[in-house]
Every structure is written in C-alpha cells, then in structure tokens.
Design a protein around this nucleic acid. Structure first.
Length: 341
DNA sequence: CGGCGACA
DNA sequence: TGTCGCCGG
C-alpha cells in the first residue's frame, strides 16, 4: 500500500480541457499497471491477441493517449529506473499479495465465481520487461516522448515540474507530492461513471489536481515536515509506517513537535527506521539530466502496423480512432491560422 | 479503461 | 440525448 496522504490534501476537480497545451509527466508504470489491472475480459483474463500476447497495456495507452492528444495535452511518460534498496520489503510484500491473488483467482475460476475471478485477476497483473518495450514502441509511433528515470519515476516526474519542463505530474499515488511535484493530477482520464466491483453501484471518477503550495499552506508544514509526516504514515521505504499512527495523528505530531526526532511518542520505534535516508530519498532524489522534451507527430502507418499487423488490433477501430485525432488536430491548426494568417 | 451499439 | 452494459484482443 502506498503513501496515504489523501486525508491531508485537498484535491481540486479539473476538466481535461484545463490541461490543454500543458505538458503532463505521466508515471508510466503506474499507468500501465492500471491498464493491466482494469482492461480485462469477463473471466478476469487480460486482453490477448491470437499469439497469447497480453495487449491490455497497449489498448489502454492507445485510447487514453489519443484522448489526451485530442485535448491538446502533451503527455510525456516517465519510466522507473533502478529501485532503491529500501523498497525491497514493499516489493516482496506486493509479490506475496500477487501469489495469494493467483491462488484465489484459479479457485474462483474453477468454481465459476466470475465476479471473484475478475476481482482477484486484477491483482495478479505483472508488468514485464517486454511490456515496457512494447509501450515505448507504441508511444514513439504516437510521437509521445518518454523519459528514463535514473531511479524512482515519481521523483523524475516531480523534477520535471520543478524544472518547468512539465506543468504537472500524473499518477494515482501521492509519492510525487513528497518528491516535491508542483502539481499532481490524479484520475487523468476521460471522466465518467465507473462501476464499483461486486456492487450494483457507480462512482463518478473525475480528474483532480493537488497543488504542492496548497498542501503546505493547508497543513501549515514545510516540505521537510511533510516528508516527516509521510514517514510516520508509512512510505514504500518504510511500509506500514508507525504503529497506531494514521494520517491525522501524523500531521498533529509533526505540527506539535516540528520534526520526527522530537516526537516523544515514537522515540523507540524511530531507532528501527532509517528515517534520515528516507528523507534524502524524497528531498534529494536522483533525477534525470534533461533540459528539453521533444514532441513528435503521430506516425499513422507505424501505429497501424504495430497495433493491427503485429498485435491483431482491429484496423477499423484503430484507423477510426486515428482519424478522430487527425480531425481534432486539423481543426486546431485551422483556428490557429485565423489568428496568425 | 474507453468505445460503441442497444434502448428509452 | 442520455444511460447502460458488453466487447475489445
């Protein structure tokens, strides 16, 4: 489980149109993982072509990015680099959750409990190296750049906002706030109703933005103190955080005491946590050395060849979607010509 | 997730 | 025109 900053931050609902013309640095692993989890058939299997290759990530990336490009949003995908050693425990925990989900998944399938199969199937998603390569290849064909982070992708995305190479970072996780991202966009997708699993109910999921300055103003904390709050709650680098301390208590303790070392209540537990190192991960992250990001044009033939010829997508669907994008881009350049002749 | 057809 | 539910690969 990631960093639970949600109760401490105010998210502003935004329309995709408000990001028109803006560069958005998307956490690639976060996005791809979500596509793998969500885009599945009725028995909980991911989409696959005739060769048995998983295509959920490509489907998600294709339709999502076309929608972003139609809105004139400039996506740049940020891929994770080497993992910090302190994250090992959290990664192992996630692997165990996955193992358990695989058991539950096959059991549910055998017993014909399809809703359970779908539920557990989602949790079995594995993001492979070839999926990373495939994703990069599709993005390139769409003219969408990617950045290879030296370490944590969220740190790199946050850096791009600080360097004014991106307007916002996009992820479902809150880590980029601790990394100092100026803005975090969550639910970067076409807004709409989503069915909640196992229930006959729907929730409205709409894009929302969290501004770093606003978080500091509302909590009355410095960035350094916010990181301390995060460490109390628990990050990927100290999963679980401190026993008996949730977001609200963590905030209260740091506001009262100023910093971790002064919180009497956690004095004993603190000895077990490499908090200085975790502070440095967030406050002095390793970031990519980039001074510009180049955006390209959609290479229609490459997209069609890759998705339809190589990956067995429907040519009608893909071509139709590319036509829709082309039309949107044409009409935008038309209205620009009115201004500049 | 996102598109699209079915249906009101 | 809007909502619902299934299909995509």
């Amino acid at each position: 489980m990631g960093l639970d900053l949600k109760p401490l931050v105010t998210a502003q609902p935004i329309k995709l149109a408000e990001l028109s013309g803006k560069v958005v640095a998307i956490d690639a692993f976060n996005a791809i993982y979500q596509f793998l989890a969500t885009i599945r058939g009725p028995t909980g299997e991911p989409l696959m072509n005739g060769k048995g290759e998983i295509t959920s990530h490509l489907s998600g990336l294709f339709y999502r990015n076309v929608n972003l490009l139609v809105e004139n949003i400039k996506p740049v995908y940020v891929f994770d680099g080497k993992m910090h050693a302190l994250k090992t425990q959290e990664v192992e925990r996630r692997q165990q959750v996955k193992q358990e989900a695989m058991k539950q998944y096959s059991q549910a399938l055998e017993e014909g409990r399809m809703e359970d199969a779908v539920k557990y199937g989602k949790r079995t998603s594995v993001l492979t190296e070839s999926m990373v390569e495939e994703s990069k290849r599709l993005l390139a064909a769409l003219g969408i750049p990617h950045v290879q982070a030296p370490a944590d992708g969220e740190a790199a995305a946050a850096h791009l906002t600080k360097a004014d190479l991106a307007y916002a970072a996009a992820s479902q996780d809150y880590d980029s706030i601790l990394f100092g991202a100026k803005r975090l966009v969550r639910n970067l997708a076409v807004s709409g109703r989503r069915k909640v699993p196992n229930r006959n109910a729907y929730v409205d999921v709409e894009p929302e933005m969290i501004e770093h300055d606003n978080v500091l103003k509302e909590t009355g904390l410095s960035h350094e103190q916010l990181v301390d709050v995060g460490i109390l709650i628990g990050t990927d680098f100290n999963p679980g955080g401190f026993s008996g301390i949730g977001p609200k208590t963590a905030l209260k303790l740091i506001k009262e005491s100023g910093k971790l070392e002064n919180v009497a209540k956690v004095k004993d537990q603190l000895q077990e946590v490499p908090y200085q190192e975790i502070r440095d991960i967030f406050l002095k992250p390793e970031v990519p050395k980039i001074d510009r990001i180049d955006f390209g044009a959609v290479d229609r033939e490459k997209v069609l060849d890759y998705l339809c010829v190589q990956k067995s997508f429907s040519t009608d669907r893909v071509a139709g979607t590319l036509d829709r994008l082309q039309k949107a881009q044409d009409s935008r350049s038309q209205s620009l010509e009115k201004w500049f002749g």
